Amino acid sequence: QGAYRADAGTDVVADILFFRKRRPDEEAVAAPWLGLANVATGAEEGETVQVNRWFADHPELVLGRHAIGSGPFGRTYTCLPLHEDLEPSLISAIAGLPAAIYCAKAGTIDFEPEDEVVQAMAERPDDPSIREGSFFVGEQNQLMQVVDGVPIAVKVRSGKSSDGVFAKHALVIRKLIPIRDGVRQVLKLQERDQPWQKAQVSLRIAWSSFVREFGPINFTSVSTTEDQETGEVREVHRRPNLAPFLDDPDCWLVASIEDYDLETNTARPGPIFTERVIAPPPAPVITSALDALAVVLNERGHVDLDHVSELLHRDVDDVIGELGEA
């Protein structure tokens, strides 16, 4: 506990595991680390806590003291530090592990992708916002999704087949894609301080088309169930228009663009349709030739001494002299 406090601001307990791959001719043996065992905490007489059997059998590999702490769901296991600096203890524990116990045969790895992968990658748009999980429409008007870095066709159910997504869900996804792309375009233009009004119009058209066919993006159906024994009533909220799109990393960005009223089941366009929602980039502060050079490199991607001198309102020779002394 506390090992990650300085770097990540958390007191989680971490297990560092080293595994050796079993050789093809090696039989499987008993794995005690698959079980649990009780160990004493030392805080109170007779107080024990369950830990992995491996750590119970090898206390020298526990870089702290077993303890019971308080978590969000009540009492939970923790490991209290014995020293402030864990690095020496960690290095010592790792050094005690077996060495040179696996001798793999040297082999070659074929890095050439399969033809199917090459063909699939050609379908992927050259757009950094299309990332793992993103849906998009391919070159042949095929609904696609990026899975494990590779675009694959989304299967749509037909007949009595249970393989793939429902046809209606595929239509919902297709209608949400231009909305997602429209939101991204508006945000990108506003971030770059470029005209974005036309992009807002395109976004409104895509959103209106979706609402006419399927209703609000955030359409929510509420159902209640009552526990017969306790009488507890539970509400279940379902969002049928968002559910098919949940795998897309921009799902909740799309959901955020409309103001939805659960009571009336109506939605109206949010601020992104008419307003600026991203502040303009601040003007660069230029006080030296190095500042001006950094601005020019950011804007043009190469050194332009004439432009540097314009930003500083100075001669090119003076700029070169200052840069040479920097």
Rank of each mutant, 00 (worst) to 15 (best):
35 G>T: 15
246 L>C: 07
24 P>Y: 00
10 T>S: 11
250 D>Q: 06
32 P>F: 03
200 Q>W: 02
70 S>D: 13
166 F>M: 11
35 G>C: 09
106 A>M: 10
242 L>E: 13
55 F>R: 01
51 V>S: 06
160 K>R: 14
272 I>P: 12
273 F>D: 09
275 E>I: 03
30 A>K: 09
103 C>A: 15
167 A>Y: 11
1 Q>A: 14
94 I>A: 02
234 R>A: 14
221 S>Y: 03
181 D>N: 06
209 S>N: 10
61 L>M: 05
66 H>W: 15
139 E>P: 01
72 P>F: 05
177 I>F: 05
183 V>R: 08
252 W>G: 11
297 L>D: 11
153 A>S: 11
259 D>N: 14
273 F>R: 03
182 G>P: 01
276 R>W: 11
163 D>F: 08
238 R>H: 06
202 S>V: 06
325 E>Y: 05
157 R>C: 14
1 Q>F: 09
303 V>K: 07
308 V>C: 12
23 R>M: 03
109 I>M: 08
57 D>F: 07
313 H>P: 07
260 Y>W: 13
133 G>M: 08
224 T>P: 00
2 G>Y: 00
293 L>R: 08
46 G>F: 08
320 I>E: 12
279 A>R: 12
140 Q>I: 08
220 T>Y: 00
254 V>I: 11
67 A>T: 09
270 G>R: 02
244 P>R: 07
200 Q>I: 08
105 K>W: 15
243 A>M: 13
255 A>C: 05
107 G>M: 07
37 A>G: 02
293 L>M: 14
147 V>W: 13
289 A>L: 13
230 T>I: 02
129 S>Q: 13
124 R>L: 15
227 D>P: 00
121 M>D: 09
154 V>H: 05
111 F>G: 14
287 T>N: 15
230 T>H: 02
210 F>Y: 08
309 S>Q: 04
235 E>V: 10
126 D>R: 08
305 L>D: 06
267 A>K: 02
108 T>Q: 09
158 S>A: 06
83 H>P: 00
240 P>N: 03
79 C>A: 08
148 D>E: 12
29 V>S: 10
302 H>V: 09
49 V>S: 01
302 H>R: 10
318 D>R: 12
240 P>K: 04
157 R>I: 10
39 V>C: 03
57 D>M: 10
